[in-house]
Computed example of a mutant assay.
Amino acid sequence: MKTKRYNIKGSSVSGITMKDPHLPEENNLALHACLDSAAVLENRETLATSLGYSTTDFVYANQTHSSNFHKVTHADIGRGATEQATAIPDTDALYTTEIGIVLAGFMADCVPVLLSNERAGIVGVIHSGWQGTVKEITTNLLKHLIEQERCLPVEFEVVIGPALSQDKFEVDHDVYDKFHVLGYAEPWISFNAKTGKYHIDNQKVVKTQCELAGIPTANITINPICTFQSDDGFSYRQDKQAGRHMAFICR
């Protein structure tokens, strides 16, 4: 199973699965975007076993491109693991202070964010599509962790995973306007006069959100893989029937 693994301090396992033509549904991990749910469950079992966990150690959310986050406890363990109906509703970011729970998020061009604060004993996963970015889901979760969970910004480690590149993230003026009003995204926006389209680097905007929250640039890593251009990527923009990568992290 193709998986990008990360060595994030404070996490026992962390990474993101990649497209793999040798596995069922090309290693699609999402029940909400599949043709064969049995194949997805098989892939989830394969991943869990490879990480040394059970499929029911994972917790999933029903993602809606919101700015909502949820603090996961052992009472949530297994939610969404075998059926979508039990996933945490209307949520696009998960975090936990508890050991042994694997937090999961799904992406196909959207920006995956994995974060850890080893001293505070917190890990989290964020699904930040362009709608989540302009709603500042990463900013909102970090503000909560800093203010309510007493995390120090300088102690976070953040990985921003594979996503749609600026070259392929082509939008019209309506989406540009939403990024423009943020007040800090402009350096990551270009305009193509020939096509009349704007191109936005969503990964860099999310990185800027982390920096504005006080996280040192040196503590933030960006994976340069473009999910549209890479054979290892699921891309909704390229194929509306695309499967999903799973970003995961566990204390």
Rank of each mutant, 00 (worst) to 15 (best):
T3R: 14
K4M: 13
G10A: 07
S14Y: 06
M18F: 13
M18D: 05
K19E: 07
P24H: 06
L29R: 06
A30G: 14
H32N: 13
S37E: 15
T46K: 15
A48P: 02
S50T: 08
S50E: 11
Y53M: 09
Y53K: 11
S54E: 14
S54N: 13
A61C: 13
N62R: 06
N62Q: 09
T64Q: 12
S66L: 09
V72C: 07
I77Y: 04
R79C: 14
A81Q: 05
E83W: 04
Q84D: 10
Q84A: 13
A85V: 06
P89M: 03
T91F: 01
T91C: 15
D92V: 00
T96A: 05
T96W: 06
V102Y: 01
A104V: 14
G121C: 08
G124T: 07
V125W: 00
H127Y: 10
Q131Y: 09
V134A: 04
T138M: 09
N140L: 12
K143R: 15
H144W: 01
H144R: 01
L145R: 08
L145N: 09
I146R: 08
E147K: 13
Q148M: 09
E149D: 15
E155P: 00
I160C: 06
I160Y: 08
G161L: 04
G161M: 07
Q166V: 06
D167V: 13
F169R: 02
E170H: 10
D172R: 14
D172C: 06
V175F: 08
Y176I: 01
Y176E: 11
Y176R: 12
K178E: 14
H180A: 12
Y184H: 10
E186Y: 00
P187V: 10
W188L: 11
S190L: 09
F191I: 08
F191G: 07
A193V: 08
T195Q: 15
T195L: 13
H199P: 05
H199A: 10
I200Y: 08
D201G: 03
V206M: 03
K207N: 00
K207E: 13
K207Q: 15
T208Y: 02
A213F: 03
P216F: 01
N219S: 14
I220G: 02
I220Y: 01
I222K: 05
P224Q: 04
C226P: 03
F228M: 02
Q229P: 00
S230G: 04
D231F: 06
D231Q: 14
D232N: 15
G233I: 05
F234V: 04
R237N: 10
D239S: 02
D239M: 00
K240G: 03
Q241I: 00
Q241H: 11
A242E: 04
